[in-house]
Design a protein around this nucleic acid. Structure first.
Length: 290
DNA sequence: TATGCGTGGGC
DNA sequence: TGCCCAAGCAT
């Protein structure tokens, strides 16, 4: 439905939207899908160059599916969470097998692809196909928490109330709903940011419940910080970087030198193999998966 | 439902 | 400087 927020936010988006390639008129559904995979937990600035190279090399799902998954992992570079590369490759293969090489437009079909959850299915259906779905990402959750609920941050995990709220705000006309969703996301990314919101630039500051309450500080449970140094995650990253940067298979010794703790190193390597990110060869060497 | 999963930039 | 955060997903 239409609310007091709708027009100001849509208007603000028209004047302030970033010129991102996956939003261009000639962007393909595949380009949108690739961007959504890469943007999962990764900032736009770091995605941009990788996305351009990716789309040049693999302009269609079929072109990616025709190559080994290890090539996807290599091209993923340092975006982080490389299992996403594997799942994107898997999605490309499933799109070829089940959908004739064309990215499906329905939420259900998208949700059935590997690496696609509720958010990404809604985002692709909405942004690539102009379908009407509530798109609830971290930006939207934060904007709605402040605007409608008067709190600085949304709950730790997504609630049904948040989904209902997002659905209740969705314009009835599907293309307008899609534009609304991307507009709220953009507002969260550029103005209603997590750390230091720029309320002076906000088009709905006058209607914001958090603003009207005097911007009370967050008083919920501490928001979980992620430690990294010394973790299995860091170890996995080091090991995989060796394989990414190598031309072909590497000797075990090349992996051993990047992490001192042998127990942790072996555990991480086994996990990478179990995840399908590393292929142990018969000759004792290691490679990205074929 | 809580946890594990990479990486780098901003404050 | 460390800490927090970034268009989540799978288990």
């Amino acid at each position: 439905m239409s609310t007091a927020y709708t027009d100001p936010i849509l208007h603000w988006y028209g004047a302030n939207a970033r010129d991102l390639p996956w939003r261009a008129p000639d962007a393909t559904p595949w380009g949108v899908l690739v961007s959504e995979f890469m943007l999962q937990q990764t900032p736009v600035a770091r995605v941009l160059p990788v996305w351009h190279r990716w789309m040049e090399r693999w302009p269609t799902p079929a072109s990616l599916a025709a190559e080994p998954s290890g090539e996807a992992v290599r091209a993923w570079g340092r975006l982080g969470y490389p299992r996403r590369a594997l799942r994107l490759h898997g999605s490309a293969a499933a799109i070829v097998e089940r959908h004739g090489g064309r990215v499906p437009s329905s939420h259900d079909d998208l949700l059935a692809l590997p690496g696609i959850g509720a958010y990404t299915a809604a985002a692709v259906a909405s942004f690539a196909f102009r379908r009407r779905h509530a798109v609830l990402d971290t930006n939207v959750r934060r904007v709605l928490a402040r605007l409608c609920s008067g709190v600085e941050y949304p709950p730790r995990s997504q609630t049904r109330a948040e989904v209902r709220l997002a659905e209740s705000l969705l314009p009835l006309d599907p293309p307008t709903a899609a534009r609304w969703s991307v507009a709220v996301m953009e507002l969260g990314a550029l103005v209603c940011t997590a750390r230091t919101p720029r309320c002076v630039d906000c088009p709905v500051t006058g209607q914001c419940a958090w603003q009207r309450a005097g911007r009370p500080a967050y008083d919920g449970p501490p928001r979980r910080g992620q430690t990294y140094a010394g973790t299995d995650r860091q170890c996995r990253g080091r090991l995989l970087a060796v394989l990414r940067d190598a031309e072909g298979p590497v000797e075990k010794g090349a992996l051993d030198v990047v992490w001192a703790d042998a127990v942790q190193r072996e555990r991480a390597l086994d996990a990478l193999i179990a995840d399908g990110l590393v292929d142990p060869l018969d000759d004792g060497r290691y490679a990205l998966p074929a």
